[in-house]
């Protein structure tokens, strides 16, 4: 019966390991749904990770760490927002600059913090009663942390806002066709700033999760490409928050396995798995082309908007 325990443990850990990816992806979905392609997720996550860690370390309060991490990610995203919305730069390059900047800055500032263990992490909790449910209990309700549930809750909330509220219509319209939205009196720039900011907040929160919960310490470059996986996952999840849940946990299980299988396979090769999967996952998606066409990228993704007259 050992393999069953294995599967259950893998799935349980998938939730833990997939949560930062989920948070980042939800944010990027919002940014891209409004038409802003923010390739700076890696940079925002590492900034969130560093500031989140230091804040939690100094204040000994992990929740303040999450808050600070999210805030820093949001602030960084506004820089990208300003460049893409007002200066109308090429968004791909601006995002790359943000990533380089974030990785560099945290590398410079974070040297003194390397290797210090964080004692103020958040508790793992088991939901009484529910954890006894066979199969689901051990996966969902045993030794999980609150952020996992917050992630799922946010996914549902953001899905609901995007598809069931008037603001959701506005966001999607701005991303599809800003000219039309503008002609109907929508403040395109404001909507895009808001969505970019949401993207930054969540990326920062995901980063803070990495340094507070996932691996309670600070290592330079600890995001290790997770920001790029987020960007890829945003595409695979067809810009849909609920699909993103599944995708994130799939990556989460890969991260766990790449750690768990180390006694048998060289760790470097295992580390490749999520990256390889990122490249190969679209091939699976490619099989159902019809789905892709119906739920294609937002029409104005990555395109700066300017009024006709200007």
């Amino acid at each position: 019966m050992e393999w069953q325990l294995w599967v259950i443990e893998t799935l349980r850990r998938a939730l833990v390991y997939g949560t930062p990816i989920l948070l980042g992806t939800l944010g990027e979905i919002y940014a891209e749904r409004s038409g802003i392609l923010n390739l700076g997720v890696e940079g925002m996550m590492i900034l969130g990770a560093f500031v989140g860690f230091t804040t939690a370390f100094v204040t000994k309060n992990p929740w303040l760490g999450f808050l600070a991490g999210a805030f820093v990610g949001g602030a960084a995203s506004l820089l990208h927002g300003f460049l893409s919305i007002h200066l109308r730069v090429i968004q791909v390059v601006s995002g790359l600059a943000l990533t380089l900047f974030g990785l560099g800055l945290t590398g410079v500032l974070g040297r003194g913090w390397e290797g210090q263990p964080l004692k103020a992490s958040i508790a793992e909790l088991s939901v009484p009663g529910l954890s006894r449910i066979p199969v689901l209990g051990p996966i969902l309700f045993t030794d999980q942390n609150l952020l996992v549930y917050i992630g799922i809750g946010l996914a549902v909330l953001l899905w609901w806002v995007l598809f069931k509220t008037s603001w959701g219509i506005t966001v999607r319209s701005v991303g599809e066709d800003p000219r039309t939205a503008d002609a109907l009196g929508i403040n395109v720039a404001l909507v895009r700033y808001c969505c970019t900011f949401i993207g930054g907040l969540l990326a920062g929160l995901g980063g803070a999760y990495l340094s507070i919960v996932y691996r309670p310490s600070w290592t330079q470059g600890m995001t290790a490409g997770m920001g790029w996986i987020v960007i890829a996952l945003t595409i695979f999840s067809l810009w849909h928050p609920l699909v993103a849940i599944g995708g994130s946990y799939a990556f989460g299980s890969l991260f766990y396995l790449s750690f768990r299988l180390q006694p048998w396979v060289a760790p470097e090769l295992l580390t490749i798995m999520p990256y390889l999967f990122t490249i190969l996952a679209p091939l699976l998606l490619h099989a159902s082309r019809r789905l892709r066409r119906r739920m294609g990228a937002p029409g104005a993704l990555g395109l700066p908007y300017r009024r006709e007259e200007e």
Binding site: E176, A181, G299
Partner: peptide, 21 residues
């Protein structure tokens, strides 16, 4: 000035003061 992938109602509602929920 219509948004192709959206429904008629969504297009009409855009920019109107409709209830949030």
């Amino acid at each position: 000035r219509l948004i192709g992938p959206h429904t008629v109602a969504e297009n009409v509602a855009l920019g109107l003061s409709v209830p949030f929920i």
